[in-house]
Simulated assay, not measured.
Amino acid sequence: MAEKKLKTLLVFKYIDEFSDEAHPLSTSQIIEMLANEGIKCERKSIYADVKTLKEIGYDIVSIKSPINGGFFMASRKFEIPEVRLLIDAVTSAGFITPKKTQSLVEKLESLVSKNQANSIVTQVYIDSSTKCDNEEIYYIIDALHKAIQDRKKVKFIYKRRNIDVENKKNYTEKTFTVSPYALIWKDDHYYLICNNQKYNNIMNLRVDRIRKVNTLDESARPVGEVSEYKNSFDVADYSKKMFNMYSGKSDKIRIACELELREQIMDRFGAKVPLSAYDSSHFETTVDVAVSDGLIAWLMSFGKKVRVLEPQYLADAVKERAQQIAKLYE
């Protein structure tokens, strides 16, 4: 009986791993695979196993053909485009080390057949030069996540690269004690949104630069004490307002943009962002954002195609930045 149950499980394993619509697995192939495991069986027992697997919900298709007959898994929890999307996300994520990237990609490959996985992997490229080297990253993310759930402060070391004359790779380490509120993946980096206990505001720290996380018994500060979010931290709203993950005071800004920028503005602020005519060649919009150096850099990236209408202090800041840049080239 034990061998019979094992055989059924192995039949499922073989069909799940090695078959797809383009590569059905024949009865002879399954019998040969079972024989390699020391299990001998007849063809009709394979049909019985497949019938049992179908009865409990697996979408296995039988092809009756003397040339390319057999069985294949017709549907899976993840389709090929979905797995490809996940693999692309993992390979492009800078906070995942090359070693962990490879491990995650291999796990994602197991969601489809081996033939399908091979077709995906041939298109995958991992650029190790853009990846972090923090092999503690999983532990750090887990520890921070638990601290956020338990509303506890955390203490850790924050590591930054130094700039020196000889261009040697050395780092400065600084100890932070913070109240953590959220983890955000933005601009291909993972950030911890938190409050440094020395100040009354929110800051963003790169998770890949965090080391040696220690969760404290001390309760985290309520987010309403250090931000505009009085009851709970609104991750989506905060992420939408941030530019290059620079924190700043939230304010409404009104900008005039050339007509060709409507897609870029909707990509940044969402399809529901208000767009109204300003003149024959420009539209205007009003959005609520965090005013910061990141916002100024983003506005200036469009050159003369975007102009700040309100508030005046932001228009003056952009003008001053432009003048400073112009002086560098005089």
Rank of each mutant, 00 (worst) to 15 (best):
M1K: 12
E3P: 12
E3N: 15
K4G: 05
K5Q: 14
T8C: 05
L9G: 14
L9M: 13
I15N: 06
D20L: 14
H23D: 00
S26H: 13
Q29C: 11
A35K: 15
S45Q: 09
V50T: 03
K51V: 05
T52A: 08
T52D: 13
L53V: 03
G57T: 11
D59S: 15
I60M: 01
S62F: 13
P66R: 13
N68L: 12
G69E: 01
G70L: 04
M73I: 09
K77D: 03
E82A: 12
V83K: 00
V83W: 01
R84P: 01
D88K: 14
T91G: 02
A93V: 09
A93G: 10
F95W: 06
F95Q: 05
K99L: 07
T101R: 07
L104V: 10
E106L: 10
L108I: 12
S110W: 08
V112Y: 03
S113V: 07
N118V: 04
S119M: 13
D127R: 03
D127E: 03
S129E: 11
T130Q: 02
T130R: 12
K131Y: 04
C132N: 06
E136A: 09
Y139G: 00
I140W: 07
I141S: 00
I141C: 00
D142A: 15
H145E: 01
K146I: 09
D150N: 05
R151V: 06
K152Q: 09
V154T: 05
F156W: 02
I157R: 11
I157T: 13
K159A: 02
R160V: 08
D164L: 08
D164H: 15
K168T: 10
K169E: 06
T177I: 14
L192E: 00
I193A: 07
Q197A: 12
Q197C: 12
L205Y: 01
R211Q: 05
K212E: 00
E218Y: 02
E218T: 13
S219V: 13
R221C: 10
P222A: 00
E225G: 02
V226F: 11
E228L: 11
D234I: 09
V235S: 07
K241H: 09
N244Q: 05
M245S: 14
G248L: 03
D251S: 12
R254E: 05
L261K: 02
Q264C: 09
Q264A: 09
M266C: 12
M266L: 14
F269K: 12
G270K: 11
V273G: 02
A277R: 08
D279Q: 04
T285M: 02
V287F: 01
D288P: 08
V289I: 04
V291A: 00
S292E: 00
D293V: 08
L295P: 07
W298C: 07
W298E: 01
F302N: 04
K304E: 03
P311G: 01
Y313E: 03
R321I: 09
K327V: 12
K327Y: 05
L328H: 14
Y329I: 09
